[in-house]
Structures are given as structure tokens and as C-alpha cells.
Design a binder for these strands. Structure first.
Lengths: 107, 107
DNA sequence: TCGTTTCATCGTAAAAATACGATAAAGGAA
DNA sequence: TTCCTTTATCGTATTTTTACGATGAAACGA
């Protein structure tokens, strides 16, 4: 019998492919930008806030924030809900749960 | 007493900052490139292989592979060990373990 | 020594990402 | 309607990333 200590620890499998890999890489790419990561952090503490709140919080132009929100939306990190002239943003819990579980299973 | 079902599920905390956030974002950025992700996958099944093996496996130039390896090294995903004229590459288990645990705790 | 192998780095071209001001669209208030 | 607020999109400039060929460095064998 092989002692437990000699069994090499599998540090990760990276067992993913095709559409799932594409989706995961898109999510990874989206959060690997510091500004977008900060937007996500802001949404954790300010769920349902509007674009203007994020614009006020960040030191960048409104057009740039809007562009980052689009990237986060398309990657599946956030959901936007139009309400009058404003848009409320929330974390996309379902996709984030998928991300967490996928990363947990392949790394 | 509040029923369990009404307790909102915390989808993520994103509780990270400073040097740790910087390191995490660098690792995220490094793997969000498809070629680099494929290199990591190759290393899972070919631990200790040399640069030339990766060059043969991928459809891109040697200089480009070397550049990607540099990015992965600096981000902490892999370790390179010079052996004669060759360089053996392995996954950086310790950093990958850190990555996995960090992602698990903030998402 | 001389040539070969292996790999990193240099210089540079092309593509993608990031940022901005200006503008457009759409809802609400007067 | 007219004006104001809010946000997305357009066009574009700048920066960063990605890719390549060429070159250099270092180890090895003949």
C-alpha cells in the first residue's frame, strides 16, 4: 500500500473546454481589470445602485464607466434593470455562483 | 426568529485590497488569455516539460511562447528551472493553492 | 575550437483595450 | 411642448497586448 504522503497532490486539473472555457475566460478577463473589479466591489456594498452612483464613486468619465458596465454585463457579472431614465445594477448571483463553482472544481 | 429561507445568500464579498488584490488581478489577467490558459492545461498533463515541447504543441512562434511563459512566471502560475540549454516548466503549486483559496473566500 | 541546440530578449508591426468628449435616446417634470 | 436628468453609443486618441523575425547567450557534442 502506498503511504498517503507519497500520493502527489493534484494542484489543479483545468478540466474545461469549449463553450465553458470560453465563458470562463470571458468572466476572468472582465474582472482582471482593476476598474471593473472595483465596480464589482462597489456593487457588493451598494446593490441596486444606478450608473450615476458608480460614476460619482470612480475617478473616470461617465462614458468609460458605461463601457465597463457593458463588459461586465456581457461577461455575466452584473444585471442591469432600466427604471425610468436610470439603470439599476446588481451582481448576477447565478453566474457568479457558476464562476465560483467552476473555479473551485478545476483549480 | 427569522426563517432560514429569508436570509439573503451572500453571493460574494470581494473582500480584498492592496497587495493581495494586485497579485490576484495579475494572476487573473494572466490566465484570461486563451493561449496562456492552454499552456497551463498542457503543463497539467506534461509537468516538467521544456519550452520546445510547448512550442511544438502550440501553433505560434517560439518567441511568442517564450513571452507568454514570462507572463505566467511573473504572475506566479509557473516555475522555470534551467537545465543545460533547456528550461523545464512546472505549475507553481503554492501560488495556485493561494489563488484557489483566495477566490474561494472572496467569491 | 566550431557547430548545434535551446531559449530569452530585442525591435517592431498589428490588433485590442482603455479613455475621453460629443451626441443621441428616452423618461420625467414644469 | 419644452427642458432637464440619466445613460448608452459614436468617433477617436492613446496605451497596452499580442505576435513575429532576428539576434544573442549559454550549454553541449564532435
Amino acid at each position: 500500500m502506498i503511504p498517503l504522503t507519497t500520493i502527489p497532490e493534484q494542484c489543479c486539473t483545468l478540466d474545461i473546454d469549449g463553450a465553458e472555457q470560453k465563458k470562463l475566460l470571458a468572466m476572468l478577463k472582465a474582472i482582471s481589470n482593476n476598474t471593473r473589479f472595483e465596480i464589482l466591489k462597489f456593487l457588493v456594498t451598494h446593490p441596486g445602485c444606478i450608473t450615476g452612483d458608480i460614476v460619482d464613486y470612480l475617478p473616470i468619465a461617465q462614458a468609460t464607466v458605461s463601457q465597463h458596465l457593458k463588459v461586465l454585463r456581457h461577461a455575466g457579472w452584473i444585471c442591469g434593470t432600466v427604471s425610468g431614465t436610470a439603470t439599476n445594477y446588481c451582481l448576477d448571483d447565478a453566474n457568479i455562483a457558476w464562476f465560483k463553482s467552476k473555479v473551485g472544481q478545476i483549480f
